[in-house]
Amino acid sequence: MISLLIISFGITLIYLSIAERMRTYNTLIALQGLMLFFITYIELKNIDVVHLLLILLETLIVKVIVLPYFIHRLLIRKNGDKPVALVVPGFVSLTVVTFIFFMSFLVSYLLHDDQIQVKYFTGAMAAIFTGLYLIIVHKQVFTHMMGYLTIENGIFLLSLAIGNEMPLTVNLAVLLDVFSSVLILGLFINRLEMFSSLDVDQLKDLKDS
């Protein structure tokens, strides 16, 4: 079951690299959240109820419901479901993400450790680097944010990959989530309207000379 979830998680990453519409990105991130929710449930069934509930509620509410809903309402419905400007052709992104997958697999295999499971680690590393890749190649604030959320999902998966200090690390990841929600909801959506379009080319006033 976990394999199925992690593979679907991986496929969402591949899809993210070629997605072209804002709504697709949003849906994919929400889907990732849903998969993380199930993975967390299966993986952490045995920890104490309070912690489990906290983590599950956080994944379900923040990742699957609140963030996608707000992004949908404040960005997509308001400005229309615009196509995201792809700077690098989807074909290249796809190749890169596949390569990332392969490399993260190799890395996790070479660093083989009894404590972590290769499948988790591969998924997590692939998500982190795919997120970084999305941030590097895209030029829109929206896709940057999606890249950040992908990284963060990767971190969450990574914290699940480590069996030992589960409650503390996962709680920290939860904290990270809450912070990032603050980041997105607080600043981004309310304030960046000052810039007429959400293109990073507009964020170029700060420079030397």
């Binding site: 970084l132 941030i135 604030v141 940057h144 944010m145 950040y148 990284i151 912070f179 990032s180 980041l183 600043l187 981004f188 304030r191 960046l192 000052m194 964020l203 006033d205 700060l206």
Partner: peptide, 14 residues
């Protein structure tokens, strides 16, 4: 300052 804040928040979070 908004631009700087956004960049700071974003890159720093990453």
């Amino acid at each position: 300052s908004l631009e700087a804040t956004w960049k700071y928040l974003f890159v720093s979070s990453i």
